[in-house]
Design a binder for these strands. Structure first.
Lengths: 221, 221
DNA sequence: GCATTCATTTGATCTAGATCAACATGCGAG
DNA sequence: CTCGCATGTTGATCTAGATCAAATGAATGC
């Protein structure tokens, strides 16, 4: 919902989004506060988004409140690209998040005019597909400990192997991403902590250090 | 493995694959017997495939034998399209299956030469992505009965709502697609039979009729 | 800086689905 | 036709993870 965002300067896009659309398309910057919905399932897919800073969850819900988070998107990631006119899932900000927004129609125009690099556009969709395929294997066939180990290594990779990583999501988000309950995620993390594969920062349980990536990788079958 | 296939006539492709590559690219027809591998995870992604007749499963395996089937592909479906040089999953024929094969390189050439319709190519990948997103919700959050009901309605739709549908896959395949065991699938089907939502053909448990699609849809949340 | 609320951990118990086991049925090979 | 193996069903039991519950720790508002 753009209502919750504050418009910033209009400027040419760069990074991935520039590769996608060349220098010919302009976009806006918006900022979303923690927990705020960026778009909802079923809404018009007017824009494509790229994260400047912060983190976003995309997810689908069942009528009774069960939730499946498809993916966590971090700095540089693009999301919200749809085939049809409506979003097939919801997206909201996990923390204070800044995004670049480009009108879907301008990308479609650019495609028509051969301005867009097809290859990059397809690569973007294919990356999402590859992630989804990996995640189906996790959701269908991995144990809770394997899922949590896979998650930690995925985040470690995405955050460029920092010595201390600060997770932008809470235990419930992790659970809804991994197809578990928040209690099971918490227990799995405690087990990995007790086995000295990771340690928490004293102050907050969201800040943690991976102590043995090799041992974690053995859980990540 | 093309070793297991018999080459047939070279001819211009039609249907979806023609939309994708225009009239400029030619392809071969191959036939695979039931249970035969079409390609394996990690092999060179030399070809893209379209099913003329039959059915195919694409899947990934964990080292200890756990298997997750991504998708069942039926007549008209394309599969095997990869971003990189290697296949990220395996594919094999569920029943005697005939496929059209087109060299990946000729599609890439066609893309370079602007012969390919970008839109169709992206639509193809996006369709796969949408299916994967739906399936993540199923694998992460649905009960066994809901999974089986969803599966039956998916197959019913794919097979154009026949009065009697003949499933090309066995209970283990269904289980590995739905993230369950074959016993759980069998039990769920028995429950749906007992509740008169479906009935089996007397002779084979693979041939069944959906008696109450509306009631099934209530399980398919 | 204190209070209220939210996030997380940990423990006790429950249960959906897995596992183990036995039997039934159908199909292909000869 | 029938033997042997594949496939499928059903029952008994087990267990990983869910659910229920409580206590603690951390963040935020006043």
């Amino acid at each position: 919902m753009l209502v919750n965002a504050n418009a910033a300067a209009r400027q040419p896009i760069d990074g991935h989004l520039a590769d996608l659309a060349g220098e010919h398309v302009f976009c806006s910057e918006f900022k979303y506060r923690k927990g705020i919905e960026i778009f909802g399932e079923g809404e018009d897919a007017e824009y494509v988004y790229q994260i400047t800073s912060g983190a976003v969850r995309t997810y689908r819900m069942l009528p009774d409140g069960r939730r499946q988070i498809n993916a966590f998107h971090l700095q540089g990631d693009m999301f919200g690209f749809e085939n049809g006119v409506a979003h097939r899932f919801s997206a909201d900000a996990l923390v204070e998040t800044q995004v670049r927004i480009i009108k879907r129609s301008s990308i479609l125009d650019a495609m028509q005019n051969r301005v867009v690099s097809n290859k990059n556009l397809i690569c973007f969709v294919t990356q999402n597909l590859q992630h989804a395929e990996d995640h189906m294997l996790l959701l269908g066939r991995k144990s809770s400990l394997e899922r949590v180990a896979t998650f930690l290594l995925e985040m470690d990779e995405r955050l460029a192997h920092p010595s201390m990583m600060l997770l932008p999501m809470n235990r419930r988000d992790i659970a809804d991403y991994l197809g578990l309950t928040l209690e099971t995620v918490s227990r799995a993390l405690s087990i990995l902590r007790d086995e000295a594969l990771l340690r928490f920062d004293g102050n907050t349980q969201r800040r943690l250090e991976l102590l043995d990536r090799h041992a974690l990788a053995e859980f990540d079958v």
